[in-house]
Design a protein around this nucleic acid. Structure first.
Length: 691
RNA sequence: GCCGCCGUAGCUCAACGGUAGAGCUCCUGAUUUGUAAUCAGGGGGUUGUCGGUUCGAAUCCGAUCGGCGGCUCCA
């Protein structure tokens, strides 16, 4: 006789097996009505699930008691169910469509399907699909689960002839299932049904708000040699109001997109004529980048780094030694072949195919656009004899690298073909690794803290033992991986270990943030490397007067300036803190009569290196404020005759509807200069009691 | 690289087989103004590019370049 333990600890005893729904009803009619599913012993399941032995049970409702946002389990059930409804609607409208796979995701769901040859779907069909879905929801048909033994189930699928569903079933068998389950939207045999593990909401009517969002393509099992599928995305919520709120939030997020803001604020430009994925830093964006570089540069000097400059290309031989050329050729621009050798090849009657093969095999004398900076820094290390007393040696450079990213992947500033890493390579004794790792992590933490970016996660990239794309001795890999694991743990932030995510020369600690449309981007990275020093035969003379191989750390706390600033634009929605803002202060004159005074104030600001401009257009002050607001300038100083007489400025701070009032011009200059030099630790606003 | 969608003035968009248009920006003039758009006038486009269909193409078709969303990839 099942004893059911509820989340609050109370225990209910039943005389015979009960469904989760019946338990809900025994607690209260309201709960039974609100119930969407259940968690039985922590496992999400249907309300109709029969519980025949002692279990813990939690009823899933749209919103947990006291919660402000929809319950994650409820959203899962609703979206999974809505995927079925959408699939049924599409199959009604497009006969012959085969279903493949339709899972719920964090914010939405999709269904992969195969459209019969000659038919296709476009976003213009969404309204029709939604109308059909609305009918199904209005019918409020129950989701009815039924199960078949394995052999019977497989026979049914074979007879129906869907190789995709058959494959899903076979994978379920591999995963240990003993039976196959279907969910009919209504009565089995009469209504639409789908092979599905479940669980689902009790009936279609429980899907409150839904929308078909977009189309994409995918491949079966992600393999482009297999069937090309159409992926239809949608989303669903317990209520229409929540759906609308979500859609509004998505619209808001789109306005923060760095590609949109980058254009509005003229932060960067990508030019067709220059090339895909090649960023042109326009003056405003260049200021932000330079300020960030200055910021990290100051910290590097404090931490004992030495700055170097190295060229963007190097001999092919260099990259053969490092392993970049053989291991990551696909991601590089092809080598630059020397003039004389090209002429010689031509003389020999070398065909284009021959040339391509020789380039691929590296049988040429030429140069490579560098995919990474480390080989250059390594050669600086190797340029003189090193003593254990010199170590660690920390060589830093804002080094620009070039990678042949696939054309379909390039976009905005976050995925580009040429980018500048805030790179450094640390050469050290093995006993110094842990401490140097800490130093690197503290840099990353400082950056995130200064910029107020708290939403990041840490990923420890380990090697995939089955892959051949790594260089070096497994023992060294073990040591390096352990050092990374220890360092990541000491951060006190949740982190994940991810096999197969290592660089080809060593494991790494990555810092990952999300962009406005929810995509994850790796920013800062710290990588331990026992391999490249061996490949380059690096050494230092130890206290025992014999040669030893140093250990290297590669690290780039921003990752790349391009990607970091792309994410930063979205983080601030273009409203940069004063120290980063391209234009920090704008002076707005009321009329020509206050122009001379305005220019005097401008002089005071520029004398202190504040990036200030003056707007002397013969416009109304309202118009000047409007214009300046659109540029997201931190401070606007309105100066009229009254201000000139009293030598004050009327301050308007970004984000404050009301003007803050007047303060002596000299005081403003002092306050803003301090705000800038402390990178926001102090603020002009405090002068007005607003901070 | 693959699939789908999309390229109209500097920007945001309209026109969807029949003379390319609006707002903002920009330029000129008037206005001298106190906290989110003063008024008037003007300039600006071989509709990404190349080819095709048509009496006629921004509009239909093909190719190409570029953008977007996915897939795959990501040292």
């Amino acid at each position: 006789m099942p004893r059911i333990t509820l989340p609050d600890g109370t225990v209910k005893e039943f005389a015979s097996p009960v469904t989760a729904g019946e338990v809900a009803a025994s607690i209260g009619a309201g709960l039974a009505k609100a119930a969407l599913g259940a968690k039985v012993n922590g496992e999400l399941s249907d309300l109709a699930r029969v519980i025949d032995r002692d279990a813990s049970l939690a009823i899933v409702t749209a919103k947990a008691k006291g919660a402000t946002s929809a319950d994650a389990d409820a959203l899962y059930l609703i979206r999974h169910s809505c995927a079925h409804v959408m699939a049924e609607a599409i199959q009604r409208l497009f006969p012959g469509v085969q279903l493949v796979y339709g899972p719920p995701l964090e914010n939405n769901f999709y269904y992969d399907m195969l459209f019969p040859a000659g038919t296709s779907i476009s976003s213009e069909d969404f309204a029709r699909i939604e109308a059909e879905m609305a009918k199904i929801v209005a019918e409020d048909r129950p989701f009815t689960r039924y199960e078949l033994p394995m052999s019977e189930g497989l026979a049914k699928l074979k007879q129906e002839g869907s190789k995709f569903k058959l494959d899903n079933a076979e994978r379920a068998i591999e995963a240990g299932s003993k039976e196959l389950s279907w969910y009919a939207t209504g009565a089995p045999g009469k209504n639409w049904e789908d092979l599905c593990r479940g669980p689902h909401v009790p009936s279609t009517g429980r899907i409150g708000g839904f929308k078909v969002l977009s189309l994409a393509s995918s491949y079966w099992k992600g393999d482009e040699k297999l069937d090309r599928l159409t992926r239809v995305y949608g989303t669903a919520f317990p209520t229409k109001a929540e759906l609308d709120a979500y859609l509004a939030q998505v619209e808001e997020a789109k306005k923060r997109d760095h590609r949109v803001i980058g254009k509005q604020l003229r932060l960067f430009h990508i030019d067709e004529m220059v090339g895909q994925g090649l960023i042109l830093w326009t003056p405003a964006g260049a200021i932000i980048r330079q300020e960030l570089q200055n910021f990290i540069g100051e910290e590097l000097r404090r931490q004992g780094y030495s700055q170097v400059f190295t060229p963007h290309i190097g001999k092919l031989e260099l990259y053969k030694t490092s392993g970049h050329f053989p291991y990551y050729q696909e991601s590089q621009y092809p080598p630059l072949v020397e003039h004389e050798q090209l002429a010689q090849f031509a003389k020999e009657g070398c065909s284009c195919a021959d040339l391509a093969n020789r380039m691929k095999a590296g049988e040429i004398d030429g140069y490579l656009l560098r995919p990474m900076n480390c080989p250059h820094h390594i050669r600086i290390y190797a340029s003189q004899q090193r003593s254990y007393r010199d170590l660690p040696i920390r060589l830093s450079e804002f080094g620009t690298v070039y990678r042949w990213e696939q054309s379909g992947e390039i976009g905005g500033m976050t995925r580009v073909r040429g980018f500048t890493q805030d790179d450094a390579h640390l050469f050290m004794r093995e006993d110094q690794v842990a401490q140097e790792l800490q130093g690197c992590l503290s840099l990353v933490k400082l950056i995130f803290k200064t910029l107020g970016m708290s939403e990041y996660r840490v990923r420890v990239g380990l090697r995939d033992p089955d892959s051949s794309k790594y260089v070096g001795d497994p023992k060294n890999w073990d040591k390096a991986e352990d050092a990374c694991r220890q360092a990541a743990m000491s951060l006190g932030v949740p982190f994940s270990e991810e096999p197969g995510e290592a660089a080809f020369y060593g494991p790494k600690i990555d810092f990952v943030v999300k962009d406005v449309i929810g995509r994850s981007w790796q920013l800062g990275t710290v990588q331990v490397d026992y391999n490249l020093p061996r490949r380059f035969k690096l050494e230092y003379i130890g206290s025992d007067n014999t040669a030893h191989v140093p250990v290297m750390i590669h690290r780039a706390p921003f990752g790349s300036m391009e990607r970091f600033i792309g994410c930063l634009i979205e983080h601030f929605a273009g409203a940069f803190p004063t120290w980063l803002a391209p234009e920090q202060v704008r002076i707005l004159t009321i009329s020509e009569k206050s122009e001379a005074y305005g220019k005097e104030v401008l002089g005071m600001l520029t004398a202190r290196n504040v990036r200030a401009m003056i707007d002397t257009d013969p416009e109304r002050i309202q118009a000047k404020i409007k214009a300046a607001t659109e540029w997201k300038i931190p401070y606007l100083l309105v100066v009229g005759e009254r201000d000139a007489e009293q030598r004050v400025v009327s301050v308007r701070a970004r984000g404050h509807q009301e003007n803050l009032g007047a303060i002596p011009a000299a005081d403003f200059v002092t306050a803003v200069t301090e705000e800038i030099s402390t990178r926001g630790a102090t603020s002009v606003l405090s002068r007005f009691g607003k901070a």
